[in-house]
């Protein structure tokens, strides 16, 4: 990893291994459809390649890719909105029979939705874990992801990566120990 310099460089060959899951989690939390999220990540990479010459190297590669993905998410919502025809807002003031009191007050959202706060916190947690996984050596990250996130059995992971179970557990141990340290300050308090 180049450090000590102000300019970052793009390395498209490593994009999928390094950022795909991170971007995918970002997308899933915003479009809540796994296939659309996957397509948005794919489009992000391709758009990144096409506009690579515009990359000035002031932001990190990942920040830059996330900013492209953000626009892809917005475009996605624009597209589905225009498919529906013009945006239409209908308010029915007197449709509900059990309403009482001020209509406006009844239609306002809860000021603090506990559920939403929880969702935001979990999303931050997800990004934090994904960040930490990104700092692991590639093979450890792969083993940890397959085992923990995809929930694969030890046997299947061993077959897929051509390693034996004791290799696997050594890597899991190292990965987990690093992750504990990486998440320590913010999440183990």
């Amino acid at each position: 990893m180049p450090s000590g310099t102000n300019t970052h460089q793009l390395q498209p060959d490593t994009w999928v291994d390094t950022y795909a899951d991170y971007l995918y989690n970002y997308a899933v939390s915003r479009v809540s459809d796994s296939e659309i999220a996957r397509d948005l990540v794919q489009e992000t990479f391709l758009a990144g390649l096409r506009s690579a010459k515009n990359f000035k190297g002031t932001a990190s590669e990942r920040t830059w890719l996330v900013s492209i993905l953000k626009r892809k998410v917005i475009d996605h919502y624009r597209k589905i909105n225009s498919k529906k025809g013009k945006a239409e807002v209908r308010m029915q003031y007197v449709s509900q029979e059990d309403s009482e009191g001020d209509w406006l007050e009844e239609r306002a959202a809860d000021p603090v939705s506990v559920k939403e706060l929880g969702a935001i916190e979990n999303e931050e947690l997800g990004q934090a874990i994904q960040d930490c996984i990104g700092k692991l050596p590639e093979k450890q990250a792969k083993v940890f992801t397959l085992k923990t996130i995809q929930g694969m059995s030890t046997e299947d992971v061993c077959n897929e990566l051509g390693i034996n179970p004791s290799n696997l557990w050594v890597m899991i141990h190292r990965a987990r120990t690093s992750l504990m340290g990486c998440l320590d300050k913010n999440w183990f308090g």
């Binding site: 899951d21 996957r38 947690l125 994904q130 923990t148 995809q150 998440l183 999440w187």
Partner: peptide
């Protein structure tokens, strides 16, 4: 270690 497991569950991580 147990806490890490709980955090990973709670985050509901996805992977391609």
């Amino acid at each position: 270690n147990t806490r890490l497991t709980r955090l990973c569950d709670k985050a509901g991580l996805h992977s391609l």
